[in-house]
Design a protein around this nucleic acid. Structure first.
Lengths: 343, 343
DNA sequence: ACCAAAAACTAAAGCGCTTTGGAAGAAAGG
DNA sequence: CCTTTCTTCCAAAGCGCTTTAGTTTTTGGT
């Protein structure tokens, strides 16, 4: 059933029916009630395409997920982020469009999205340092919110980020307070901005404590279980192995733990592990006492908030660049303890 | 730049330009070349909304992800499935729309999708036993492919599934062959069809081997790490604890391992663990020797194939219900070994 | 009872595309 | 040389909605 048919059935013009359903004032309340009733009875739903063609609004938010042809990996963190964002969109009548876009094709993909008019706004994922997408989106005038930030970018833009630097400096300091002096960092890919910030937090804590940073204790890579495992093995093989590990996610932390246990070392005693916990729904950090000591920030919440911010910017572009920095909790779990006494 | 402007610029009618770009024959090859060149130079992209309004095709595939208001959990398996499907859509010029739909609202959500004309087809996720969505989608005439199957459904429909029953009977038999006689099943939610089939595979292997099934060794729940952990603890607390665990996913397997190790038991020696490995990109089952002995089937591939099937059905509805049953590999890893001798 | 203003409705244009039904000109056939 | 058939192009309708610019009906003030 489309508008025309509904209008005919009611013996009214399309104009009136459309106005009644969209709560315009210039329609008699009695008629409006009659129209709304008929709309419900006939399960009338305006055709989205027609509506958006007429209004110029697509009522759709795009999520462009960078996919590397080499690694071809989809971050599990997306699942929870998207769940959070999706809720918000649904509540506001927006749809969510997902596109996987390959490394080199990013500029084209974004321009296309604008030209095709398929979205009203975009969430930018996994910003890299000096990410060119920010200038690009500003140029083409597509509203966007970055999940994360991009260092070395001069534009003013909207973002929501976790205080990654602080998170990692706090975690490092916490380990220092337990007398650890040799801490391995199992980081994400360091061309990604968040990983860069985490590293700088790790380094600044070392500087603050006067502990030298050893580049051989810093690992970076895709945040997979296997990467956590392999990096940890390498770290433990060092002539001067670490007594503690700082892992970028629950998943790499699990890899760290596997490698540690494989060596017959006891987590929380021989070796401490601190992770960054995104509160992934399928990988919660335990049910009572946290499995891992962790800096914690819900990526589900981040998704929700980012979406809200984006919708706000779309509604009122003048409300200007919005920024939000989330602080993390430091929760102490079973995976950390005082550094073992040196023999 | 829209069609009208492009046509004016070229001194041609919209008709000719449109036809040239869509490779219709009734246009001079020289003119076509000229038009295509201009289109590229001006980065012309037809407005999707207008196009789909005119053609009646939305060129969009919908993924409705069931979200429970109670658990509010997004399965990480979706991430990889969607990555696979997304690739395929991109290659064929389709967009992907994601909606989170709450438990009770499913029927309405599907009908709305049809009425609003937002998608040309749908992938049905997480089918339950006797899932009503299949009858519903058949009734409203929206092309769909089910990822999984639904027992007790009489309709003919398209699906792509893993042979879950066989996977779990093989895994169980494998453990029997290692002399395990008491095997705990850490299953997914058993109202979900795949979990039901896995259970029946587990049971049929017991029947085949003449080993009685103990309901107290069968656990079911959301496939999280914590659920795996808690179920395992409960199983190990039993007066007659199991010597082996069969876990529904990598993630629950990790929970099983945690509980086992917490008791000071050695995986692969005191206790064997076999998992179902979906080949999640972030949780690969090790890099050389598999961490866990597993039945393996790539959910990324499943996403790809499901998408291909759906596009095929959309293109040629007559090509009828398509079905595809994927068999799993049984890969032996480090987590299984002969049952410990009874004292 | 009359006129202006407000209320309630409608016809038609327009969003940007595809597609139908021609039309004009060139090539082919007799 | 005239008719027929291609070839190549175009004007205009239509997809289903919103919205502008009116038109008709009611209301209210005098």
């Amino acid at each position: 059933m489309n508008l025309k048919q509904l209008a005919e059935k009611l013996g009214l013009s399309q104009t009136t029916v459309s106005r009644a359903l969209n709560d315009y004032p210039e329609v008699n309340e009695e008629t409006r009630a009659r129209i709304k009733k008929a709309a419900i009875e006939n399960f009338y739903r305006p055709n989205t395409r027609a509506k958006s063609l007429a209004t110029g609004l697509s009522m759709t938010i795009g999520h462009l997920i960078p996919v590397s042809t080499k690694h071809e990996i989809v971050n599990p963190i997306f699942a929870d982020f998207i769940a959070g964002a999706g809720e918000t969109y649904a509540r506001h009548g927006y749809d969510m469009m997902l596109s996987l876009v390959e490394d080199g094709n990013e500029e084209r993909a974004y321009r296309e999205l604008k030209a095709k008019g398929s979205v009203d706004g975009i969430i930018v994922h996994s910003p890299k340092m000096g990410d060119p997408r920010i200038a690009l989106l500003t140029e083409i005038g597509l509203p966007f919110v970055v999940h994360g930030r991009a260092s070395h970018v001069t534009e003013d833009y909207s973002w929501l980020d976790v205080n990654n630097k602080r998170a990692f400096s706090r975690a490092t300091e916490f380990l220092f307070s337990l007398n650890h002096r040799r801490i391995a960092l199992i980081n994400g890919l360091e061309n990604l901005d968040f990983a860069h910030r985490r590293k700088s937090g790790y380094i600044s804590a070392h500087d603050g404590a006067g502990v030298p940073v050893d580049p051989e204790m810093m690992f970076s890579g895709e945040m997979t279980e296997v990467q956590g495992y392999l990096s940890t093995r390498q770290a433990l093989d060092h002539v001067n192995p670490p007594t503690a590990f700082l892992a970028a996610s629950m998943i790499s932390g699990i890899g760290v733990r596997r490698a540690v246990q494989e060596r017959g070392l006891v987590v929380g005693k021989d070796v401490s592990i601190v992770i960054f916990d995104d509160e992934l729904s399928y990988l919660k950090n335990g049910h009572d006492i946290p499995i891992f000591t962790a800096t914690r920030s819900s990526v589900h919440f981040a998704g929700q908030r980012s979406a809200e911010m984006l919708l706000q910017i779309i509604k009122e572009p003048a409300s200007g660049p919005l920024r939000e920095l989330l602080e993390v909790d430091l929760v102490v779990g079973q995976s950390s303890g005082p550094a073992p006494a040196r023999e």
